[in-house]
Amino acid sequence: MRIVFAGTPETALPSLDALVASRHEVAAVVTRPDAPSGRGRKLVPSPVAERARELGIEVLTPAKPSDPEFMDRLREIDPACAPIVAYGALIRREALDIPEYGWINLHFSALPAWRGAAPVQRSIMGGDEVTGACVFSLVEALDAGPVLGTITERIRDDDTSGTLLDRLAHQGAHLLRDVLDHIEDGDIGAVPQQEEGISYADKLTVEDAHVRWDLPSFAVDRQIRGCTPAPGAWTMAGEQRLKLGPVTTTVEDTLAPGELAVGKREVRVGTATTDVLLGEVQPHGKKLMAAADWGRGAQLAPGLVLA
């Protein structure tokens, strides 16, 4: 089956690789235009664009998927189906109707839970024990199309959004390939999503990553893990902004919320319940370091409270 693949970040690469190795023909990829990156703000191609060019696959980078030139080229290619993974732009009805079997989207949650841009981050921050990945038929509504296949995955106690997304990206790639196989074989049916259990996963903002020390320790732990590696959990130590890695919860309640205690081998912070131990910290403009190393050299004022 001839397909056109749409995706942009590294998260989409396992799916692209799986489809290239499958029985289907990847005739082209659609990805976001080159974007500025680094201190020099030099324009660089997306990870999907780079991989496709390495593989000798045509790369389409419309500013918008509704651009007439892109639409004309899509009609010329005439794909039977268009799988999409983290592409980053809305596909309008005119484009949705071109492939015979439409566009199918790999989404990293067990729909209808966590529709939207940040399902993995929100599932960790929300305290879910299980998440998953779904392939569904794309419609002109946010992640609302009928589901063609689902897998589930347990959220581990030490998962960050980065580690969990990596597992789901690889497992979801196999799911996406299998769904395409069944579409071509004609032995799969789409199941409408339930109206109950719908939740939304808005994109995380910098303020979402500002650690709330007035929350219970388990919620602080989830917030930080959900924001790791991006956008990166942070707090203020006086006038100094600190980026924080995952913490370790304890059973001791010795400090007030945000209160900092620096020991020889640990840095402890109070929450609304029990204390947590900082793992790695990154002061502004410096490298990531162990919290104990930072605490020994930071010359912190006595009684400092993180905010």
Rank of each mutant, 00 (worst) to 15 (best):
G7Y: 02
V20S: 00
R23E: 00
A28L: 01
V30C: 04
S37M: 09
S37Y: 08
G38H: 07
R39L: 06
E50M: 08
R51Q: 12
R53W: 03
R53E: 07
G56Q: 02
L60A: 12
T61Q: 13
T61R: 12
P62F: 08
K64R: 14
E69Q: 11
R73E: 11
L74A: 11
P79G: 09
A86R: 08
G88A: 12
R92H: 02
L106D: 00
L111G: 12
P112N: 09
P112R: 11
I124C: 07
I124A: 06
G126L: 07
C134D: 07
V135N: 07
A141I: 11
L142H: 10
A144K: 11
L148E: 04
R156T: 00
R156W: 00
L164N: 08
D166P: 00
Q171R: 15
G172M: 04
H174E: 03
D178M: 01
D178V: 00
L180I: 11
D181G: 10
I188P: 00
E195R: 15
I198L: 10
I198G: 09
S199P: 12
D202P: 00
K203E: 13
T205K: 12
T205S: 15
V206R: 12
E207L: 15
H210V: 09
D221V: 04
R225Y: 01
M236A: 10
L242G: 15
L242W: 14
G263V: 06
G270Q: 06
T274H: 15
Q282N: 07
K287N: 14
A292R: 15
G297N: 14
G303D: 01
